[in-house]
Amino acid sequence: MDLIMSNSVAMILYYFITAFFLLALAKNFLATKSLQEAALYGIIMIPFVLRLLRLK
């Protein structure tokens, strides 16, 4: 497999990882009973969303 192909596959895998962590964060966000934790999860989710949408 050439370099461009393998790099593209790795990049796609990275998006799956990003999606996975976003889902995990969302799940924690929904489950938590602490307001502070909820706020924290809310902020942390922002870069994951932006990366998934290929904005940054």
Binding site: F29, G42, V49, L53, K56
Partner: peptide, 12 residues
């Protein structure tokens, strides 16, 4: 969620 979403939307 609204605030974080708003921030993400503006930044985006």
């Amino acid at each position: 969620l609204l605030i974080a979403g708003g921030c993400a939307a503006v930044a985006g």
